[in-house]
């Protein structure tokens, strides 16, 4: 009986809001200080002189992670690290001014994310998976070396779109029903 009561009972709690008392509110408006936003954008812009170096570091990390996965096997910890690095680069490349690298890494993450149990797949599928993942790394390197940043570059657009289409086909063909990233 008590258990039934527990199952159907929940509490709504209004937590103490100390934040409002800590926030300095100046003037009127919708909360956003456009001058502060401009300052923040300027700060990012100041950092942007370092973005190319940062991007180079991240792309090198991606290459090393892929090489390690090729050596040790993509299904274990090396594969997990490969995914983490790709995921990092997906999140950062857009900020660094390379949205096409974000798209490429999004495709790579989708590939990883579509697989619940890669080690139980036949070796042939694992090999194809590893090769397709490696192609994403080649594409990222090509985008960096060609300074291809966004879809205004026709070849870059075609390259990344075809890679994504290939990835989706792979998922559909070899891992039907596994993709839950939609």
């Amino acid at each position: 009986m008590a258990e039934e009561q527990e199952d159907t009972t929940f509490q709504m709690i209004t937590p103490p809001n100390h934040l409002k008392s800590k926030v300095k509110v100046i003037g009127s408006g919708d909360g956003i200080d456009m001058e502060a936003v401009a300052r923040a954008e300027a700060a990012i812009s100041e950092l942007s002189v370092e973005f190319d170096d940062w991007l180079a570091d991240e792309v090198e990390r991606l290459g090393k992670a892929q090489e390690r996965a090729a050596r040790e096997g993509i299904t274990g910890e090396a594969g997990d690290e490969f995914f983490r690095v790709a995921h990092d680069l997906k999140g950062q490349a857009g900020t660094f001014g390379y949205p096409l690298i974000t798209d490429t890494c999004a495709s790579l993450c989708r590939l990883f994310d579509s697989i619940k149990d890669l080690e139980s797949q036949p070796d042939s599928v694992i090999e194809k998976f590893a090769r397709l993942a490696e192609n994403h790394v080649f594409t990222v390197r090509a985008l960096v070396s060609g300074q291809i940043k966004d879809i205004s570059h026709p070849m870059g657009k075609k390259l990344t779109q075809e890679l994504y289409a290939t990835t989706l086909k792979f998922i559909e063909r070899f891992l039907p029903g596994e993709d839950s990233g939609k």
Partner: peptide, 10 residues
């Protein structure tokens, strides 16, 4: 509401 500044927040 005015614009918000977070100088006392951690």
């Amino acid at each position: 509401m005015g614009s918000m500044h977070f100088d006392r927040m951690r």
